[in-house]
Design a protein around this nucleic acid. Structure first.
Length: 196
DNA sequence: CAAGAGATCATCT
DNA sequence: GATGATCTCTTGA
């Protein structure tokens, strides 16, 4: 039960993306606690990564990507879903890890109400679903994972290298040469992945 | 079960 | 004016 420090996120994005597997996303609000084990992530790194929002340069929206490691980047996609990212590497270098799926652990009843389903595999098995279940919105954009609202914990789970699957990212067909970069990671045996 | 379409809007051109 | 780091629902085999 150890809150991850900034040094964890201040490393190469691909390493952080892999190491986040098996860690726990925790969202606290008053006396309610929601948590889930991270089972799927994707890396977005630098202005040269055509799939990264920062490839369009520094704008009001992408400013968060240039913030210090551990900053939370949340944006709205397709007009109705939010995506949760955690900024990595050095300040002013735009990079982040997209948290794509978690296995629900605590606060499942709240997640079921928000997601309007009792099927545990449908609660947080995708970036949009996860934000819905955890109540993550753009209000969180620009905050960090070092406060007492949103944080990442190491609860001692060990994810072996052989249990991690490495494949191209989802939904980035527009990214030209970067489309096929194997920057998506997930836990092979998990039943809570966004898609095969 | 697979495939396709529609929902819906902030952001950038 | 176009477009997405998605999801759900409908259709049809």
């Amino acid at each position: 039960m150890q809150k991850l420090p900034q040094s964890f996120f201040q490393r190469p994005t691909l390493v952080v993306a892999r190491d986040l597997l098996g860690k726990y996303l925790v969202v606290k609000n008053g006396n309610s606690v929601l948590s889930g084990k991270i089972v799927e992530t994707e890396a977005y790194r630098g202005e040269d990564d055509l799939a990264c929002h920062a490839s369009k340069g520094r704008t009001p929206r992408t400013e968060t990507l240039y913030a210090e490691a551990g900053t939370i980047y949340v944006y709205l996609i397709y007009g109705m879903y939010h995506c949760l990212n955690i900024v990595t590497e050095e300040k002013d270098f735009p990079s982040a890890v997209l948290v794509r799926a978690v296995e629900p652990i605590e606060g499942i009843h709240t997640m079921e109400k928000r997601r309007k389903t009792k099927h545990s595999r449908a609660l947080a098995s995708g970036p949009g679903k996860l934000c819905d279940a955890f109540g993550i919105t753009k209000r969180m954009n620009g905050k960090t994972v070092f406060g007492d609202t949103v944080l990442i914990e190491d609860r001692g789970d060990v994810v072996k290298r052989n249990d991690i699957v490495t494949v191209p990212r989802v939904g980035v067909d527009y990214a030209g040469a970067c489309t096929h970069l194997p920057w998506r990671f997930y836990i092979k045996k998990s039943g809570y992945i966004s898609r095969k």
